[in-house]
Design a binder for these strands. Structure first.
Lengths: 282, 282
DNA sequence: TCAAAAGTGTTGGACCTACACCCATGT
DNA sequence: ACATGGGTGTAGGTCCAACACTTTTGA
């Protein structure tokens, strides 16, 4: 068998960069609300010219995935040195209209204060978009060997520039205890299959928040516990009780001697992440 | 920018098929011990001719990853209709000596009673190998912003045919709570970087056993609770207390009316997986 | 009879949930 | 003064680890 026989696709990396940002607020006493956001770029070239998309790039000949991701972020968005993890590889033969392109997706988390985005190479514009998820329809069927759950989810992406509507159908089929998930894009203002990748990344992030310290990547070096709680609340999409939350994170953080003042209420102590925290071992 | 400029690598899928198998035993009263095994094939062609490797194949032009995985298993090993999940994509430019090949790996779990393996296309031989892991060295350093843990792990793969020695160095660096893992092959009797992929798959499986029902894919339709416990014990690599284990899995299983008899001791009730089990919701 | 495994009950402690309460601040 | 958030204590329940104990079988 000669290697020349084999089919060769193009390979890209796509990055999903999340952050949580403060919303400005009127009342001097109140804390700012938080918004969960994703970074999108407006494509300068074909295909999907002028469409918003996840920042991505072709992988070069001698380049590792991580190198491609970092180059992409640097060139297109001006971001560097951030937390990244590989998510999933997308290989559907039809996912790119030009030719077959396989994409390996990476999720990145940033503290919004740490970075300054800037539209770069092949990018017409760059913007943070608020993420709003609405479940439109939900259908659950019990079956002999499991159950079936079809959700129609609307992903609304909002910025000053544009509002992007996306509707995806997420089918979770539990067969003998194994969750098989397939996603289908019903309607999307994003380029390619990026709505699918985005919803996958959101699910993964929400999941990992519960049992890892991944959320700390969205925080500045020093933060208040209420701030941290707000980030958890927005990712888990439910309110948490203050006293209980503080006990839960108590050994993931280290007290500093500093306080946040001038807030119209009692100053709050600043904390740092405890780098030596380890999940429970037995 | 013309698409022809872009570099195109070859793309393969590699599969890591695990099972747990009974070892025959002398004492009529005693239960058989269990062995954790992985399926390997002996390569019929270059490169790495005559070396044992994970079953894999090039992805064809109009083929999805899952289709390639299923075709590969069918053609090379005679396995079909099993539980599969995508693990990770490996893109190191040097991982294949011929040219750049990107590999997306899938993990599969089977009940050994369900299948009959057979060496197929481009496969000289096929065999289940016992997996034995030994930690040779371990070094932990506390650092300012986290800690660093280097482990040297020996992966011994044993079958009637051969014993394969592999030594990998797994470095876990915890920086600000993020686990960065990089693996390096020190010595390997397996083809390509398959020792690296294997250790990754083992870690993932051990992890998922704790918080999912993934282990049930290694079980036959009907099983005893002690049997199930043995599978958990071998994957978690620690003994479990019977009473507690039974309480833990009690709502993941359904009692049947059947018993396993003729065992030299009290007959044990057979259970089925409860397909409607759901992890805790609030 | 008895070794081996099947199967169940109990107890103390850790942790989680919900709620209540007091404290400190800037305007 | 007071609205707002900072910060802590407690009671009740649930879950889990560890251990002890009884039951049933085949040779």
């Amino acid at each position: 068998m000669k290697k020349e026989e084999y089919f060769k696709p193009s390979v890209t990396v796509d990055t999903i960069i999340f952050t949580v940002r403060d919303l400005n607020v009127d009342n001097y006493r109140k804390l700012p609300e938080k918004k969960f956001q994703v970074l999108l770029v407006k494509r300068a070239g074909e295909p999907y010219k002028d469409k918003w998309s996840l920042p991505g790039t072709f992988v070069e000949k001698e380049e590792r995935f991580e190198e491609a991701v970092n180059r992409c972020l640097q060139e297109k968005t001006n971001i560097k040195d951030i937390y990244l993890e590989q998510l999933y590889s997308w290989g559907d033969p039809q996912r790119d209209p030009r030719e077959r392109v396989i994409s390996t997706s990476y999720m990145g988390l940033v503290d919004i204060g740490d970075i300054q985005i800037k539209a770069g190479k092949n990018v017409e514009d760059i913007e943070w978009f608020n993420i709003k998820l609405n479940t439109i329809k939900e259908k659950t069927k019990e079956k002999k060997n499991g159950y079936y759950k079809a959700e129609e989810i609307e992903i609304l992406l909002e910025s000053k520039q544009a509002t992007l509507k996306n509707r995806v159908k997420v089918v979770k089929e539990i067969v003998n205890g194994n969750t098989i998930i397939y996603t289908q894009i019903l309607q999307s203002d994003l380029a390619f299959d990026h709505a699918k990748i985005l919803i996958y990344a959101i699910e993964r992030l929400k999941n990992k928040v519960e049992y890892t310290t991944i959320a700390f990547n969205l925080m500045p070096e020093k933060f208040t516990l209420t701030n941290l709680q707000q980030v958890y609340e927005i990712l888990l999409d439910k309110p948490l009780l203050k006293a209980n939350f503080r006990r839960k994170v108590s050994d993931m953080v280290i007290e500093t001697e500093e306080y946040e003042e001038n807030a119209g209420h009692r100053p709050s102590k600043l904390y740092k992440f405890n780098p030596n925290w380890q999940p429970h071992v037995f």
